[in-house]
Amino acid sequence: MLTFDEPIAMWTRTILLVRGHSKLRFWVGLVLAVSAVVFGVVGACVWEEDLTTDQRVYQLSTQLMCPVCDGQTLDQSQAQLSLDMQEVIRRKVEDGESNAEIREYFVDRYGEVVLASPNAGGFNLVVWVMPLVIFVGGALLVGNAFLNMRRQRRAGSESSVKGEAVDDVEATVDVDDSLGEYLERADREMTVAIGRREMTKGEDKG
């Protein structure tokens, strides 16, 4: 009856198979890890020379702004100047100039504003470093807040709230494995809810 049951059942079986065999698991893990590394190294290296002229023209046209259109890159703009600039790019690519050289050419002509993203050098280093600072700084803040809460909680838990042990009530549901897991979780959370409700009721009386 359940047609959409099949793929998921297959899934579950495959996973169970891998999970049950530590050797198999090891090999699967190893293959995944190695392929991830190889793949990362090879995939991350895209060389200018590997691209066709057209691809490079397109790539460069996304990296340069159209000087007369508000906030549009060359590939987005229909302005005549933008079309002309793309022609210039094509000529230069065909003449064998590198992407950096071509960008430099336009910077000399129109100023830095022609670059869609600032070069990572000089003062502009700031624009590139800041995101990292934001990320790391934010992570430190969050980590610190989290540790604080933990400390606070540890200090608090020594004095009171023993009742939270209801958390550990185990539900033993003997249906098939995957379902059991869901029910276990549901039951646990429900138990917590009931336990808490009873607990607070108890407090009210007392």
């Binding site: 996304t62 702004m65 869609a116 993203s117 600032p118 502009n124 700031v126 624009v127």
Partner: peptide, 16 residues
């Protein structure tokens, strides 16, 4: 920021 700090116009667009 760039305009104020060093009087150079820059663009910050999609690639960034």
């Amino acid at each position: 920021v760039s305009g104020l700090a060093r009087d150079v116009d820059v663009s910050v667009s999609a690639p960034y």
